[in-house]
Each structure stands twice: as C-alpha cells, then as structure tokens.
Write a protein that binds this DNA or RNA. Structure first.
Lengths: 367, 367
DNA sequence: CTGTTAGCGCCTTCAC
DNA sequence: GTGAAGGCGCTAACAG
C-alpha cells in the first residue's frame, strides 16, 4: 500500500514486488509465472496471475529489456508513409508483428536530410530488436551501418544485397503487362516509368522497363526510346507523360504504366484530351491499387500487405526461434537442384497476377 | 578495449563508462555533458562530445527511460493503417514526433478483437509517454482506461469527451459541400454517407449529414429520406449507393458524398450507367483526397497531415514543457469573451475549404 | 519448486 | 565544475 502513488501524484503502477507481496511469493516466482516459464507449480502460477491481474500489473518493458537485451519491437524504415503502397505494407507488417506481441516503430525518411540523420545517428539503436526496410535501395555504406547494428534485417520491394527480402519479380511484372497488350494486337506500346538516369537510386523502374523491352523484343518489335517516358511514379507525372505521348504525331495505341497511380494520371490526360479508354487507347498498370478496380484499370497486381507481413514473420522467426513457420517449407538453401546458378541470395518471391479490367481492349486495327 | 565484444560475439556498443574513461571524466559528467545540462565546463563538454562521437555512443533509451520514467515515444491508435486518411495522418504525426526526437509506435485496432485486446491488456503501458487516438470514437470505458494510464492523451478526427482534439467542423463541411450544389441551382440533392443507426460508433457521418440537412433546410428544401444513403465510406459502398439512386424513377441531379472515396465509387456507377459528370449529375466529396484532383472531383478539403502533426506537437508540449509552441498564441482557455457558452472542451478546429473542380456544374434546368 | 542476490545502463541526488 | 554511490524494475544465475 505504501507505494500506491509516486512522487508525481500519478497513480504509480504496481511493480513486481507489489505482485510478489500480494501473492505471497518472491519476485523471481512472479517473473517466472508471468512469463510462462517452467518450474512453477500450477497453484502458485494461477495465484500470481490473479494477483497481477488484480493489481493491473504489466512488466516494464524497459526494465526487462535492459536485462534481456530485447525490447519486443521492430523498426520499419521507409521513404513515404502515406503513399498507398507503403501504407498497405505498414498495415501488413503491423498485423504480423502485433500477432506476436511486437511493437512497430515507424521511421519515415522523407527527404535526404532525414535519411542521412537516420543512418548517422541510428535512432533505432537499442530501441528495436530487428529492422525492416521497405522500398529503400540502400547504398553500400547504409547497409553496412545497418549490419553493424547486429540485429536481424529484412527488406521489402527493393532488395538490399545481403539482406533477406520479400519481393515480386518486377521484370516479369513488366513483361506480363506488356504481353497482355501484345496479345490484344497492340504493337505501338509506350511505357511510362520512373527516372532511370538521375540520382534516384530505385531499381524498380529499371526492372519493369526491362520487362517491357523483353516483351517487345520477343514480339520482334524494336523499342522506340521516345516511347519510354518518365512519370515519376506520381499521378501528375503520369498525366504529363501521357499528355506528351498523345501530342506526338504518331501516338501509341497502348500504354504500359509502371504503377497504377501513374495510370490514374494517364486517365486524366486522356479525359482532358477528349479521348477515352479503352476505345482510343489501352492502359495497363502495375500494383493492384485499391482504386484500380474502381476506375476499371487493368493491372498486374502484387500482394502488398502480404509482403510486409512475410518480412515481419521472417524477422520474428530469427528473434523468437523457429516457432511456427515450419509450414513455409521451402527447400533449404543448399538443397537446390544442381545447375541452379542463381546466387544464394535470400529472396522470397511473391506471385503477381494480371487482373483484367476495362482499360485494355484489342488494338483498333487488330482484325 | 576489454569490453569491445560481449559474450554474444556481437560488437557490444560502448557504454557510458567507456565514454567516461575515454574522456577522462566520470560518468556523471558524461551524462550531464551529453544532455546539455549546466555545470559542465566548455572544455570538458566538448571533450566528452568528441569521445562519445568517436565511440559511436548513444545512451540506451531503456536504461535512461528506466530512471527518468520516459521512453521518448508516442503511441498512435487507429482503426485502419492503409486507408488514405489514416496514412496521411500517420505521416503528419511521424514527422512532428521525429522532429522532437520521439518515436512513433503504431497500434492498429483493425477489428473488435484487437480493439478489446488493446483496452484490456493496454500494451502501451510503460511503452509510450503519450497516446494519440485517431478516428476512433471511444466509449466511456475505453477512454476511462486510457485516462488511467496517467499520460497525456489527444485525438484526431473523432473527438473523445475530455481529451484534447484536433478536428474540422464536420457539420460545416457538409453544409459547405451542399451549399455549393445549391448555388449551382441544384435542388434535387442526394447524400451518400455512413451508417448512422447500426453498431458503428462513428460520429462523423451524423455530423456531415446534419450539415447536409442544414443546407437544404436553409434553402427551404424538404429532406427526402430515400435520398440519404449509406455508402460505408468505401468506394464499393459509394458505387452501390449511387447505382441505386440512379435507378430510382426520380433521380437527383447532384450528390453529396461524405468522403472522396465514396465519390470515386459514385463515378464508377455513373460510368457503368453510361452517364457522365458533371453533365448528367454533379458530385461533390469531402476530404481532399490525393486523387480527387486527378479525377476532377470537387471536394471540401481538410488539412489531414496537419491535424496529426498538431496533435503530436500538443502532446510533446505536455511532455517536454512548453518549448517552442508559444507561436500558437491562442488566447488562454479562461480568457474567452464572456458569454461564450461553448463548453471549455479542448478542441482545436482546423480550416476546411471548398476546392472547385470539374465534377460539379449548374443544374441542367438552371437557367 | 521457490527464494536471494547481483547486475542490465543510466540518471541523480549528494558531497567535494 | 566534478565525482561517488544509490537506485529505476526486472531477469538470471545460483542456492536451497
């Protein structure tokens, strides 16, 4: 009763000693009982549990973390918090973490300064048990710094050499989208992607563009560099790229947009030009954006939240020991069919699928 | 050198004693110097700083938190992580917190079970210094439980009685949207909102509907209950609500959608019915969704990230003492003009504004 | 099965 | 202006 209130006047939460006293046992027993450890009689355990509940006791994660070196939380690092893709990934991660009792600590590296600050001061040091990097292609120094943390690391969407990653095959995504257009008889196909020459370090635009070129190549179509546009992966960028494509003397009959959001921008360009999809031009996107269905956008969908969740579970497996993930019985790394010369990078590929909607139709001159 | 590596073989980060030894001072001095406290000579301070940098020292938040009772992190509780509105709020909060060196710990109460678990087990206990509730109208018990935490609390979007809240005037938002339609000569105006009778506890639909009715009332138009539809605040809901409105013998000429996402769904319904906006029907939304511009949706925009950021700053002010927010010189609570009988609820209202776009046009029969 | 005790890494009085 | 020492609340050996 003596320590009912701390010096602040706030109701000071009960400590482990309060519970011990209340249950008539020692603090060690309380600790063991509460964490489900062996060597506690059933009777004692339930008595402790009851006392703890009665006193509303929760072990201070700080104190226990201080001694165990674990804080039961995972850091998530990403470049944007509010973009659809990242928001979706965050949702997937949070759910997976929460299921195992882990907290999610968010770090948004919105600009270069924050990015530098993050890797210089490493605010996650000792604050998280593992780190999940989403959509951020790290450079050598950055990934080295993270490795120095000595905690499990994983990434999603943009692979980081040496880290476990949950991804889709972005080349295949591009190829699939463009093959679909080819199947519809289109041969004049443009591509709206991202910056591939500037200071941006993202790999994704390059990969999806490669898929675009592969598909064209297999169909015996020569790529036309003026049909590869940069849409910045924003609706606005998609709109202006599309506008300029439409204003050429010799416009394409179909456009592959490397993200659904750019495709939305392309839709706007069409509307403003008095053109309609799919009658005047076919549009296909990538991602499986929530609103793609609403706007009838054909897209190559990827499982977004699932990639985040998978990465989170992978991390927790390293932390808590392999508890339940035996179900993911991928063949062990070194049990691959011989001749598989793929480097033993630890990547887990997620499926993509073409979702047919109303934004794509046969080419006008196609039979 | 002795403690370069812990027993785990991992590079054990330097501790305060290492820094003290390196700088040739005591740990107390290191602590003071590093936290910018007085009573440290300039020379000593810079020496300590250098040592700390050299050893890559960062104070363990666990250890310092254990003794100060602070963890420098704020919990954010919300019902959905990936919806546009919430993602945007999260972004605003994260940035504001990070600016002051606080971590953001996310708690998504996606379903009833998680919601119950959260308030029953209070996983934030001792893990956060403050709590930010977003878009979650808490019931009596829930807010009581949070208050029991004895930490600063604030909320965004849905007010909780007794908590500081950052909001917009949702009645005004509805009124503004509908008044705009009235100004265009529409008199047959429908409303697509949310559930106002079921188990949902949200206040927002009721408020925006009230604004709708107020506007009609002031224009001398009788409300028609069959024109108030539930769109569930999802695109799909908006679509089906709109579809059913369009199929009535006597359809409206304009629709007020209580969220932009429902308006997007309404667009789809129009497209499927072969109708076009704004020629056949005007549509106005609420929120200022990122894609509203792309789809030419007239909307009543609210500052979303800013509300989150404001709430975060408000909390930090309570935690760190009023450091910089003097600029927010609202008149002190009890310095209001007499006769202001508004209850002294601590709410901060954010501005809304009508953004005119192409989805609204004069009523067909209007001059 | 249960209790005792020594820290985990740091902050904070209190002496000097 | 600086140092020494006692916890913060809990876990992890050890004894019993």
């Amino acid at each position: 009763m003596a320590s009912e209130r701390g010096r602040t006047g706030q109701p000071s939460r009960a400590g482990i000693v309060d519970v011990a006293r209340h249950a008539g046992v020692s603090v060690a027993t309380v600790s063991r009982a509460l964490r489900g450890m062996p060597n506690v009689s059933q009777a004692t355990r339930s008595r402790v549990l009851r006392s703890a509940a009665e006193l509303q006791y929760t072990a201070s994660p700080l104190a226990s973390g201080l001694v165990t070196g674990r804080v039961r939380s995972v850091g998530v690092v990403l470049p944007y918090a509010s973009q659809w893709f990242f928001a979706e990934v965050i949702g997937g991660i949070e759910e997976a973490l929460r299921d195992q009792g882990y907290d999610l600590v968010l770090h948004v590296l919105a600009d270069e300064r924050r990015r530098r600050d993050f890797f210089d001061s490493l605010p996650v040091r000792r604050r998280v048990d593992a780190l999940l990097v989403v959509g951020l292609p790290l450079d050598e120094r950055e990934s080295e710094v993270l490795r120095g943390l000595g905690i499990p690391l994983a990434c999603v969407a943009e692979p980081v050499p040496g880290l476990h990653s949950e991804l889709v095959d972005n080349v295949a995504a591009g190829r699939t989208a463009v093959q679909h257009l080819l199947n519809l008889g289109h041969r004049r196909i443009a591509c709206i992607g991202g910056d591939m020459t500037g200071p941006e370090r993202y790999n994704l635009p390059g990969l999806r563009t490669r898929g675009y070129r592969q598909a064209l190549d297999r169909a015996g179509i020569d790529p036309r560099s003026e049909w590869e546009r940069n849409g910045d992966f924003t609706p606005q960028g998609g709109e202006s790229a599309m506008t300029s494509l439409l204003s050429s003397v010799d416009p394409p009959t179909a456009v592959f947009c490397q993200s659904d959001e750019m495709a939305f921008g392309a839709f706007r360009a069409l509307r403003r030009s008095g053109l309609r999809y799919p009658q005047d031009i076919s549009v296909v996107g990538v991602d499986g954006h929530e609103l793609a269905e609403v706007f009838d956008l054909t897209t190559v969908a990827q499982p977004v939240a699932a990639q985040g969740a998978a990465a989170a579970r992978w991390l927790i497996d390293r932390l808590d020991g392999h508890s339940r993930s035996e179900e993911t019985d991928r063949p062990p790394e070194d049990d691959r069919p011989p001749g598989t010369d793929r480097p033993p990078e630890d990547v887990s590929l997620h499926p993509i699928r073409l979702v047919l909607r109303g934004s794509t139709a046969p080419a006008p001159d196609h039979r």
